[in-house]
Amino acid sequence: MKIKDMTVTACLAAAALVVFVIEAQLPPLGIPGVKLGLSNALVLMAMAVVGRKHAAMVLFVKIILGNIFAGTPASFLFSLFGGAAAYAVMALTFKFFGRNKMWVTSALGALANNAGQLVAALLIMRTSAVLVYIPMLVIAGLAAGIFTGLAAQFSVRAYDKLRR
């Protein structure tokens, strides 16, 4: 591992962690479990600037430490399922869409994140009542995913300029 990549990864992980912890303090948006998920923008950004493997490390640090600082055992499980699903989808589609359409990658990732969390909810609550949230989660996932994707896109552009 190159020292530079390691440093950038660590910085992104720290930033993702801060965003995650701050976001956890915000009041819920009315629908339980729906939030912007802005920390995912940092994972996506890591994918663009240091590669997929390093992005997985950012995600891992964010989930483990984020839930130690601002979470419950249940929220840890939700993060883990959602994060793993989102990462899998984004890692597979990132190269295809490239840096200029990161919002598509991000939106697909957000949908996968919500699908993963739904699975976690099914496992924890053992009731199919959670399935009524699907339409809501699709809308929220798309909106949040596109927004965080654009945020990551602009951040990557700024990062590239800075590096030059």
Binding site: F97, K101, W103, V104, A107, P135, V138, I139, L142
Partner: peptide, 23 residues
């Protein structure tokens, strides 16, 4: 087509509209 942003924008819009309609 799969790479075009317009395609995905339309697809996402349709999906969101369907869900909103259902709700």
């Amino acid at each position: 087509v799969l790479k075009s942003g317009v395609f995905w924008a339309v697809l996402f819009a349709v999906a969101a509209a369907l869900c909103a309609g259902y709700l």
